[in-house]
């Protein structure tokens, strides 16, 4: 159970489960709150974790989407995410993982360069979202977006799969990063 696999459990009826991984507990709680406030036809379950691997003795539903939250203000959060990534099965990266960088708004507080996160996300071929979670409005928008992604990843949207979404989300803007 040390490695997290995407489809090793049967899905719950009409439920979608998201796992938020990050060091900043308060921000994660707030984000989870905003997500649960969203109007959504499926039942949402939000799990919070400081880091992976998850303890094996807890009975938890199938996880449909993992969001790694990197706080740009702390090196620790980046390292934590990097270490947690080792405990995720490779099939998860077929669209069921996403990175969320927060804190880019306050440039002076940043100790992690934006490019580092971009490179990390590119290495794992996963979408990278930027959002200042401390601002209420931004958080709500991000929660909406995450809920929509989660629904797709959980298979609640007919005709669209997570992999489908991933290929659509891939940005064309920075092909040079591939050469770096």
């Amino acid at each position: 159970m040390s490695v997290l696999r995407p489809l090793d459990k049967l899905p719950g009826l009409n439920t979608a489960t998201i796992l938020l991984v990050g060091t900043d507990d308060v921000l994660l709680q707030q984000l989870a709150g905003s997500m649960l406030k969203e109007d959504c036809a499926s039942e949402l379950k939000v799990h919070l974790a400081k880091s992976l691997p998850l303890p094996s003795d807890v009975n938890r539903p199938r996880i449909d989407l993992i969001v790694f939250v990197v706080n740009l203000h702390s090196q620790h959060s980046l390292r934590n995410v990097e270490e947690s990534l080792h405990h995720v099965d490779s099939t998860f990266f077929l669209g069921k993982v996403s990175f969320l960088a927060t804190g880019a708004g306050q440039e002076s507080h940043c100790s992690v360069h934006r490019n580092t996160v971009v490179k990390l996300a590119h290495t794992y071929r996963s979408p990278l979202l930027f959002c200042d979670l401390e601002v209420e409005g931004f958080r709500t928008t991000m929660a909406q977006r995450l809920v929509r992604m989660l629904q797709i990843c959980a298979g609640h949207v007919p005709g669209v799969s997570a992999l489908n979404l991933l290929s659509l989300l891939r940005s064309t803007e920075n092909p040079s990063l591939e050469d770096l």
Binding site: T15, D25, L28, A32, L36, E43, L44, K45, V46, H47, L48, A49, K50, S51, P53, L54, P55, V58, R60
Partner: peptide, 10 residues
């Protein structure tokens, strides 16, 4: 120890 923060139930 470095585990899950607790699953909020629905």
């Amino acid at each position: 120890s470095g585990g899950e923060g607790g699953p909020p139930q629905v």
